[in-house]
Design a protein around this nucleic acid. Sequence first.
DNA 1: CAGTATTCCGAACAGTGTCAGGAGTCTCGC
DNA 2: GCGAGACTCCTGACACTGTTCGGAATACTG
Lengths: 200, 200
Amino acid sequence: MVAERTAVEPRRDRRHARHQATKREILDAAWKMVRADGLNALSLRALARVVDMEPQSLYTYFASKHSVYDHLFADGNRELLARFDRLEVSDDVRRALRAVAHVFVTFAAEDQARYELLFLRTIPDFEPSPESYAVALEVFNRGRSILTGVGLDNPEDFDLWTALVSGLSSQQLANDPGGDRYIRLIDNAVAMFEEHMFGR
Amino acid sequence: MVAERTAVEPRRDRRHARHQATKREILDAAWKMVRADGLNALSLRALARVVDMEPQSLYTYFASKHSVYDHLFADGNRELLARFDRLEVSDDVRRALRAVAHVFVTFAAEDQARYELLFLRTIPDFEPSPESYAVALEVFNRGRSILTGVGLDNPEDFDLWTALVSGLSSQQLANDPGGDRYIRLIDNAVAMFEEHMFGR
DNA sequence: CAGTATTCCGAACAGTGTCAGGAGTCTCGC
DNA sequence: GCGAGACTCCTGACACTGTTCGGAATACTG
């Protein structure tokens, strides 16, 4: 029985590799379309056309359209997590807060559809799977740990921080997409926040 | 020719009244559905079922589904405008800012779908008509004039203000719908903003 | 080579927004 | 009161959507 299992495993793995490759191609195409036409405008038939398949074949890789969204959701969170990882946290509080805010707002401003998917509940009945949600939680915790690292461990302080940063992001996307009208305000906003938290 | 016109007018008006009444009923039903199932989940066929019509009959009152959204958009903005009108602006800066923030965040937190429709571009290809957008502009100007009334006439200050308030709103909706986790932070946020603008 | 897992597609179903055309109804001037 | 015309509503239909079923290829394994 053990032999049988070890004999089967490699086959599965190779298939799995091909499978994953195609999955990646589909997801990349989905990102492209979603960026171009909006998150809610994604159509499986159009997606299939782009990756040169019949619409039904997509179901070999994804259980449903929501599952596609789910993988995009995880993708986006992994990307944001990677950017936080690349961030070397400064000792200087203001500098650290600035860096975090800049990473987040820039990330948001880059891609309206991605922001919608990750941070707004805009697709009817979509809920991330536990696995995908775990990635999102990791992002959340990472962001919070950076904040506590500079001495902000009060949950309400963190809530105010996220409100401020997400406000800059959503306003940037809504009122000046592609521009930097609100991105320019980051330093000022961080200064305001820091003064309030630590005194002038 | 003039006689003909004046003779026709009253008839038109009475029709118009009935027409508007039905229109209102349809929009009210649409609000209900949108609140229950989400903005993007609205279906003309389901809407028709609720108002006891055939789906195609809705086209007597609205040129398209987007037109329904457009009327809801105007509805929402008129409601927000009315709340600003009911607001008596205090001489005390902090009190005034608090009141404005509270009106807005409460308005947002009440209705996720309405917030999406008014402040996020979440429906594919939807753009408010000039008439509806005019109402939105009026809301925007009203909010800004209240701010300038307390001495904040710098556009960037107003941008930071809207970012802060909309951030509280969207976080409230996303992370604690129905609760008051971020609504409770309004006073604190206003204090932070005021200190930063006017000194401690 | 035989057997099996995997990938893909053809056909179909229920749902969507929307358009064309035609009934029925209401209100008007005569 | 009658005919004209606007108005309201519906039947039928079209192209689209996500999704399921069943079978045909294909690729890999023993």
